[in-house]
């Protein structure tokens, strides 16, 4: 059973006063294995938030199906085992941190004794134990994000959906979120992480899906997607066809950037010296060469731009 599964999921928003319908999600097929930290990536307007809203039951799909922990998305049985940190939220800031968590625990149908224990644990986990009696309105933006994270996990859910959890956080706050994600992973929970901070995703996630225009364009384990491939930035005096041909024999992909610069992808970093030799032997005037291991950002840009072409 998948933690999250969507089958040909589609959502079309039709403006009330006429106008062109907006296809936010278009035949999206997604499979999130249980117990993984799953990164959900995509450019702005790709349909990530709409997909998440469908998964938590706030938005009804136009077509297709979505399942959360084996239950139809939005079903009470699914919500019982789901924790969610929204991207945009306004908490009831007249409550103290403890009252706020108690309210969410009760909404999650927790019993009194378990709830009190979980409040203590969760506040400790997000680093707000000492501010438990403070009103949320007195919290900084980062602390509000952390109390938001606490409400998402107060009822010890099996699946936690985090929508941009680190957007308002400083590096220390981001590290705290990483620790919480790690804590959840160690306890066998599934974390579904939507974030624009690709370096964060790369550090935390086991699997990713990249979506664009409402469709999954790449999905898989990070280890498999980012195999030892290296991206090489090459600067020449002038890009010539014979040089491109020589590079093409060594590199898997070649992207001319302008008249002087080329980006090439090689299967392994050991191929970089071979690439330099090929350029020189083909008569190319090599002015500079810089290789780095392919990052998630490279993969993301390549996938999204490749989709656009």
């Amino acid at each position: 059973m998948w933690a999250i599964e969507t089958r040909n999921l589609r959502k079309v928003f039709r403006p009330l006063l006429g106008g062109k319908p907006i296809v936010a999600v278009d035949n999206l097929n997604l499979h999130v294995p249980p117990g993984t930290v799953f990164g959900f990536l995509g450019p702005n307007g790709a349909g990530k938030t709409t997909t998440i809203q469908i998964l938590i039951g706030n938005v009804y799909p136009t077509a297709g199906e979505a399942f959360v922990l084996g239950h139809r998305a939005g079903a009470i049985a699914a919500k019982r085992r789901l924790g969610f940190l929204p991207e945009k939220f306004q908490f009831h800031d007249f409550l103290t941190a403890e009252e706020f968590l108690r309210m969410h625990g009760r909404l999650a149908k927790m019993d009194g004794a378990t709830l009190q224990k979980r409040i203590d644990e969760t506040l400790e986990l997000v680093g707000l134990a000492e501010r438990r009696k403070s009103k949320i309105r007195e919290f900084s933006k980062g602390m509000q994000q952390r109390i938001g994270l606490a409400q998402a996990i107060i009822h010890d859910p099996d699946l936690v959906i985090l929508d941009e959890p680190t957007s308002a956080l400083d590096p220390l706050g981001r590290r705290r979120v990483r620790e919480v994600v790690q804590y959840l992973k160690e306890r066998g929970k599934t974390v579904f992480l939507n974030s624009h901070l690709l370096s964060e995703v790369e550090r935390s996630c086991d699997e990713v899906a990249i979506i664009n225009k409402g469709r999954v364009i790449k999905q898989g384990a990070l280890d498999e997607l980012l195999v030892n491939r290296s991206v090489v930035s090459i600067e020449l005096k002038r890009v010539e066809p014979r040089v491109l041909e020589a590079i093409g024999k060594v590199a898997q992909k070649v992207h001319p950037v302008d008249e002087r610069r080329i980006t090439a992808e090689v299967a392994h970093e050991d191929d970089v010296p071979e690439l330099a030799r090929a350029i020189v032997e083909s008569g190319g005037a090599l002015m500079g060469l810089q290789a780095h291991r392919e990052t998630l950002e490279d993969l993301f840009i390549q996938a999204v731009e490749g989709e656009g072409k």
């Binding site: 938590i56 009470i76 789901l82 969610f84 945009k88 909404l107």
Partner: peptide, 14 residues
């Protein structure tokens, strides 16, 4: 619109 219900609606309540 203010975001008050964003964290309440995903709770197990109809």
């Amino acid at each position: 619109e203010r975001g008050y219900l964003a964290a309440i609606l995903p709770r197990p309540l109809h």
